[in-house]
Write a protein that binds this DNA or RNA. Structure first.
Length: 628
RNA sequence: GGUCCCGUAGCUCAGCUGGAUAGAGCAUCUACCUUCUAAGUAGACGGUCACAGGUUCGACUCCUGUCGGGAUCACCA
């Protein structure tokens, strides 16, 4: 079980190779300019310029230009002052590179203006194909996420985990990888036995059907019942004079649960039957939650099956001398050379531990998927140490694929009231939260009342899409590594930097495109998007240019998101894009434009923004409505 | 105590391998619906980037230390 309840913080930036195509320039503009720049250095300063030392940055809005080169680092090479250096390079580029229209120099900054034709060429491309779909890398990548316990329902922490895992899977897919999504369900152990004992004792045969409770909620209820009754027993024992620690061990309920665990391991038919029955309830409940979340898995692992794995690998490790035994028979690994500690891998009685089965499960996965090159564990940063140790062990065991292991370590989600604690009842239930955001979307939608022609069914579907967008975007826009604060009010906000804001922009564009079709500016959306673009008779407006630039940056953003496993990068850039588009929309006429060329060009721009936005949101696991 | 993470506007977050006057959203205030969806746009207000040193032509960014917050160091998972 990897996820557990909480949600803490840390950083893990040692990225194994790369999850995206490394060789290709995701930024075509730079691909054109870098060689020219090298050539400039050759001619002007007789210097061989290292590609890696070139840093283009977008020109700040207050200056004229599209790209900026900071020449300060080159002064030693040029042997001239900053202004002269920048001017020399600028003049060379303008002469040699057709798309370099002109340039200006401010202090040590060379601002380059790229020709409109370059941008419109790009726009045509963005309108015609999916610029957020990279060619295949030929790599197969496994992403493990969710991985709950079966003794309690999913909560807010799981939401961040699931949304991250699902989004990362999609990002990697868009970046050209084949992705296998998995989870490992902790369906065995003392925790589920507690629920079982409590249900037997207090349940009176209650089922999801008779109680009307979702299966996972029902089982969770008995987990809580157990805890309550157990605490009462302890208190009684303590009042009777027993020390607390002793009481915790001697409480009859705990003894019963432990006995049940033994019976389970001994394959006791009655215990197994109850176990399967109650787990069945939980899975039905989980599936309903997953469906509403919109997350999916390609393969499920169960700890009841994997917990026996790993012993063989531990034995082999002992043979190789990678591990060692202590006098009591327990098996250890010494990671002090790596700056860590010694870690136990197998108990003195030969039974396995969390670490043991994680070793075995990893081995099994690479056996089952021979083409697998990367395995990403989406697990809270409270387990940073565990994964560090796990990866070191697998490397020590000599598995070459161990280089492709990665822990996507994400930070805890805090509540305004502080940390989420299941024992204190401060957990935010996943189902409740999703219902809440959807209700809120409905409330807001009905206030605006512009959906009169929608059927009830259509409205419900729309509110579902909007509410979940609010929640998902709220959780995904923050850097995964960082601990974040969950503010309920902000999470259901539909304005500003939110998912619904992006959806709204999309819906508005679709409305515009429908109108264009109606007025037969194009006989279909496709032809709207594929018509010729003329710029001979007009220059791109600043608003148009700004939008195109955000589109242009997007492939590089996807590349970055795939490399760093950061959906937040895409979330934030999508927001920047639609914000620029809204600004354009507000001040530049499209359907009202009389010049047909300009109009077509703006429709293409709008269509491209819609297409890219939809795909970007898909990468986040968020849907976009055609109207709202 | 050892190891690791975090500290940017009142609040929540961006800030790319060091580069121009540190950016958004929320909140507060102002303006804009007889023009393509106002779930929108434009603007105002708001900062000793925790603190102190250091490296550098240049530091929110890199290094050291201090303070504050958190995680983890189980024959638990």
């Amino acid at each position: 079980m990897h996820v557990g309840g909480g949600v803490p913080t840390q950083r893990h930036s040692s990225l194994s190779p790369s999850f995206a195509a490394q060789t290709m320039f995701q930024d075509r503009l730079q691909a054109q300019l870098v060689p020219a720049l090298q050539s400039a250095f050759q001619h002007l300063f007789s210097h061989e310029l290292d590609v890696r030392s070139v840093g283009f940055q977008p020109t700040r809005p207050e200056f004229e230009g599209d790209l900026t080169i900071n020449v300060f680092p080159f002064l030693k090479i040029s042997g001239k002052g900053p202004e002269q250096t920048a001017t020399d390079i600028g003049e060379f580029l303008q002469r040699q590179v057709p798309i370099v229209e002109r340039f200006n120099v401010v202090k040590g900054f060379l601002n380059i203006v790229i020709a409109d034709s370059y941008w419109t060429d790009f726009l045509r491309e963005a309108g015609n194909k999916d610029i957020l779909q990279f060619p295949s890398t030929g790599r197969q990548v496994m992403v493990e996420y969710s991985s709950p316990n079966t003794n309690k329902p999913l909560h807010l922490g799981h939401l961040r985990n699931n949304f991250l895992g699902h989004s990362v899977s999609r990002i990697l897919k868009a970046a050209g990888n084949e992705v296998v999504r998995v989870q490992i369900i902790n369906d065995r152990g003392i925790h589920i036995c507690k629920s079982m004992v409590a249900w037997q004792k207090f349940g009176k045969g209650e089922t999801p059907e008779t109680s009307g409770l979702k299966g996972d909620k029902l089982v969770g209820k008995y987990y809580v019942e157990f805890d309550k009754a157990y605490k009462a027993e302890i208190e009684q024992l303590v009042t009777g004079g027993m020390p607390k620690e002793e009481a915790e061990k001697q409480a009859p309920l705990m003894k019963e649960a432990q006995a049940m665990l033994l019976a389970w391991e001994a394959n006791d038919p009655a215990v197994r039957a109850l176990w399967e029955r109650m787990n069945g309830w939980v899975y039905a409940g989980f599936n309903a939650t997953y469906t509403r979340m919109g997350v999916e898995f390609d393969k499920l692992y169960y700890e009841s099956q994997t917990y026996v794995l790993g012993k063989e690998d531990v034995r082999k490790g002992l043979e190789k001398g990678v591990f060692y035994t202590k006098p009591d028979g327990s098996v250890w690994v010494d990671n002090t050379a790596e700056g860590l500690d010694e870690k136990v891998l197998q108990r003195g009685d030969g039974t396995s531990l969390y670490m043991t089965q994680d070793i075995g499960t990893a081995v099994k996965r690479f056996e089952e998927f021979p083409a697998l090159q990367q395995l990403i564990y989406v697990v809270g940063n409270e387990q940073d140490y565990h994964f560090k140790v796990l990866f070191i062990i697998l490397k020590k065991l000599g598995f070459t694929w161990a280089e492709g292991l990665h822990h996507l370590s994400y930070g805890m989600v805090d509540l305004p009231s502080g940390k989420m604690k299941s024992r204190e009842g401060t957990v935010v239930d996943a189902d409740d939260l999703m219902q809440e955001v959807v209700d809120e979307a409905r409330k807001a939608g009905e206030e605006l009342s512009k959906l009169d022609e929608f059927s009830e069914e259509e409205k419900s579907a729309l509110y579902e899409t909007i509410g979940l967008a609010a929640l998902k975007y709220y959780l995904l826009k923050v850097d995964p590594k960082k601990r974040m604060l969950f503010d309920p009010a902000a999470s259901i906000d539909l304005q500003g930097h939110t998912g619904p804001f992006i959806q709204y922009t999309y819906a508005r564009i679709k409305s515009l495109l429908r109108k264009a079709v109606e007025l037969s500016v194009g006989s279909s959306q496709l032809s709207v998007a594929s018509g010729p673009l003329t710029t001979d008779n007009h220059q791109l407006l600043p608003e148009e240019r700004a939008v195109i630039k955000f589109l242009h940056q997007f492939p590089a953003v996807l590349n970055e998101a795939a490399t760093k496993l950061e959906p937040s990068t895409i979330a934030n850039h999508t927001y920047e894009l639609v914000k620029a588009y809204n600004s354009f929309y507000q001040s530049v006429p499209v359907m009202k434009e009389e010049d047909p060329d300009k109009q077509r060009s703006r429709l293409v721009l709008s269509a491209a923004v819609a297409t890219v936005t939809k795909k970007a949101m898909w990468c986040l696991g968020i849907g976009v409505p055609e109207r709202m």
